[in-house]
Amino acid sequence: MSLSLTELWVILGCGAITVLSRVLPFAFVKSLNMPAWLISFLSFVPITIMTALCCESLFIAHAGHLASLNIANCLAAIPATIAGVLTKSLLMVVVIGIMAMAILRYFSIG
């Protein structure tokens, strides 16, 4: 168990930065009336952020070149998506996804 001074500063500094990024918008929205264009803009945040987060795991970045597909993740995404369409249950998507990935790894695919 050790904690250097640098590590302490990193924890406190990064903690403050993160909590401010999360909390300040709540304070602003609470006290201000937001213009219609901003509300329209924000209505697209859920679908865009979730899509981008999915893409982050489906593509492999290569600096200076076009990205390639993460084959294992893309393959496991297929049964996971089908599970979602059939059951509409988040839990089933996660369980089927993990099982698909375990099978892919067992046969060393991707």
């Binding site: 988040l90 998507v93 993990i98």
Partner: peptide, 28 residues
């Protein structure tokens, strides 16, 4: 730890969430 596929849980979760968002957001 990746042998058991647990590293895919996060990706699967976002796939599930984005699909549920897609079919249930009636405004957009």
């Amino acid at each position: 730890p990746t042998r058991f596929g647990f590293d895919f849980a996060l990706t699967a979760m976002f796939i599930g969430l984005v699909y549920l968002q897609l079919i249930s957001d009636k405004h957009l």
